Computed example of a mutant assay.
Amino acid sequence: MLELKPFAETAFTKLFKLESQVYVTSPDEVILEFFLLGPTRHLHFPPQREDAEGTVPRRDELWKTTCLEAFFSFDQNADSPYLEVNCSPNGDWNAYSFISYRQGMKADGTASVSLSHRSLESDQAVFRVKIQSPALRQFKKLGITAVIEFSDGSKSYYALSHPGTQADFHNKAAFSYSL
């Protein structure tokens, strides 16, 4: 298990542990499991919704509330391209490609993301996110992150590491998991 750490400790982050597991199931598919361990009554999740055909659409700005994220890159060089994947616990998702650190952001049309499992209990929440893209074949580094919104509206930013003075999921020094 990989432990994600909050950027700043708060009364709520002291109640929770966030862990992740990575499964590379094929050259163009990665499954990430997120385990939020603690009293889930203190968590805020966006409401479930589907479009008219019963599919879950791509949505922007998912990071404004609880959001599970992954960042894929060739390396930890700030000037190299990378892929950002966002998945809400309600199944909404999006994927963006960047040409370098926070530059050239555009929706990535090759990626497909799905929340393939969701389990909520009083003492844990488990989410399995399936990410598919031919671009994954070229990436070697992974950053695993999450924005967690609590019942009082406060948010915490979790990552494998926080190398900067601010929470910055795009900082490639935190892309520390080798695929």
Rank of each mutant, 00 (worst) to 15 (best):
M1A: 11
M1F: 03
L4E: 00
L4P: 06
K5F: 12
K5T: 12
F7H: 10
T10G: 08
T10A: 04
A11E: 13
T13S: 10
T13V: 08
K14A: 15
L15M: 15
F16I: 11
L18H: 03
L18C: 05
E19L: 13
E19M: 02
S20A: 15
T25V: 12
S26E: 00
D28W: 00
E29F: 02
E29K: 15
L32W: 01
F34H: 14
F35W: 10
F35K: 10
L36Q: 12
L36D: 04
G38W: 03
L43T: 07
H44W: 06
H44T: 13
F45R: 10
P46D: 09
P47Y: 01
Q48R: 09
Q48N: 09
D51I: 07
D51M: 06
A52K: 13
G54A: 05
T55A: 05
V56G: 00
V56C: 00
V56L: 01
V56I: 09
P57N: 08
P57F: 04
R58N: 08
R59Y: 00
R59V: 13
D60M: 10
L62T: 10
L62C: 05
W63L: 04
W63I: 05
W63S: 09
W63H: 13
K64N: 11
K64T: 12
K64P: 06
T66V: 01
E69F: 05
F71A: 07
F74V: 08
D75T: 15
Q76P: 05
N77L: 07
N77E: 08
D79S: 14
D79I: 06
Y82K: 08
L83M: 01
N86P: 03
N86E: 06
C87A: 14
S88V: 00
P89E: 01
N90R: 01
G91H: 11
G91R: 12
D92L: 15
A95D: 00
Y96I: 07
Y96A: 11
F98Q: 04
I99F: 04
S100N: 04
G104T: 06
G104Y: 04
K106S: 14
K106P: 03
D108Y: 02
G109V: 05
G109L: 07
A111S: 15
S112F: 12
V113K: 10
S114E: 10
L115N: 07
S116D: 02
H117Q: 07
H117V: 06
E121H: 02
E121F: 02
S122G: 03
S122F: 08
D123R: 14
D123N: 14
A125K: 05
V126N: 04
V126W: 02
F127A: 10
V129T: 11
Q132S: 14
P134W: 00
P134K: 12
P134A: 10
Q138R: 10
F139Y: 15
K141T: 14
L142H: 09
L142S: 12
L142Y: 11
G143H: 13
I148Q: 14
F150P: 05
S151P: 00
D152H: 02
D152F: 00
S154E: 04
K155Q: 14
Y157G: 10
A159V: 01
L160V: 12
L160I: 14
S161Q: 14
G164S: 15
G164Q: 07
T165R: 06
Q166I: 11
Q166T: 12
Q166C: 06
F169R: 07
H170C: 06
K172V: 09
A173C: 02
F175I: 02
S176A: 13
S176R: 09
